[in-house]
């Protein structure tokens, strides 16, 4: 399966998951799909049959509400049966819309209350260093999420402790619940901010597989004592025309039978 096909499959399964409850965090799930496709096809050293393997790469989905996109990815990789995708947010499910490390094989950290993931990832990276494990810890944050001040506490810590195994991917889809991020509370210049905090920072098209691949590769091999940041310019709702056109409303929206069918037609 090519990375393009993998990404399309993730999008289809993300919508399957969201359709099972009729609505959910569509926009921010679809915007990170291409990053997940590149990570899980080319970079993540993980074993679906041993999800807690000590010597693995880890991913902290700090924007925990995008769980459906990660669940779709993990299901395709074989971490759990695809049927689980139809149980999103049903009582007793293994797939709550915000990720939980105790419930879902392949989820490395709980998230949902925004702003905590980068700090938790610092703990994971530090633990790897103490355990002599040479693996990466990836974090996916939202751009709006960077309004939470704790991110910058985490960033300071990562630089101070020279956590160069830490790679922060910022999903810069430029929208948050109340509108455009630039209007609600501008977080730019994200690259300059992370650079000022001691990171190596790059900015790429978050839907260009080769650009993403190059950026992740550079971050992975840098090993220069600096934590790494990749700001990904993305489109909220990416891959489905009517979701892309919704603007801020796509953050949490419906996935009716008709919308699901129309979306699958676009994702053939």
């Amino acid at each position: 399966m090519t990375v393009q096909q993998f990404a399309k499959e993730i999008r289809r399964n993300t919508l399957r998951c969201l359709h099972s409850q009729g609505s959910g965090h569509v926009g921010g799930s679809l915007s990170i799909v291409d990053a997940l496709a590149v990570l899980y096809s080319r970079y993540m050293h993980v074993d679906p049959h041993d999800p807690r393997m000590a010597d693995r790469d880890k991913l902290v989905l700090s924007k925990g509400h995008s769980g459906p996109a990660l669940y779709a990815t993990l299901a395709i990789k074989g971490f759990f049966p695809a049927e689980w995708l139809d149980t999103l947010n049903k009582l007793g499910t293994r797939l709550p819309s915000h990720v939980n490390l105790n419930l879902t094989p392949g989820v490395d950290m709980t998230a949902g209350s925004l702003g905590q993931g980068l700090s938790c990832a610092c703990g994971l990276a530090l633990a790897n260093r103490l355990n002599g494990i040479d693996r990466n810890v990836y974090v996916i944050t939202g751009d709006g999420e960077l309004q939470e001040g704790q991110n910058w506490e985490g960033a300071m810590f990562a630089a101070q402790k020279k956590l160069d195994s830490l790679i922060v991917l910022v999903d810069s889809n430029k929208l948050q619940i109340d509108g455009a991020t630039a209007d609600v509370m501008n977080v730019e210049d994200i690259c300059a901010k992370f650079a000022a905090f001691g990171f190596d920072a790059q900015r790429v098209d978050g839907h260009d597989y080769e650009a993403l691949d190059g950026a992740i590769h550079r971050a992975k091999i840098a090993k220069n004592g600096k934590p790494q940041c990749i700001v990904m310019d993305t489109v909220k709702g990416k891959g489905v025309s009517f979701y892309e056109a919704m603007g801020a409303g796509v953050h949490s929206t419906s996935v009716t039978d008709e919308q699901y069918e129309a979306a699958l037609n676009e994702l053939k």
Binding site: S119, A121, G123, L124, L126, N131, Q150, G154, F157
Partner: peptide, 25 residues
Amino acid sequence: DRCIDVGIAEANMICIAAGLAASGF
């Protein structure tokens, strides 16, 4: 190696601890 002063950032400290605990510490 096993003593970490995070500076004046208690919220950060709690979550770093959670990450360490998730790795068996």
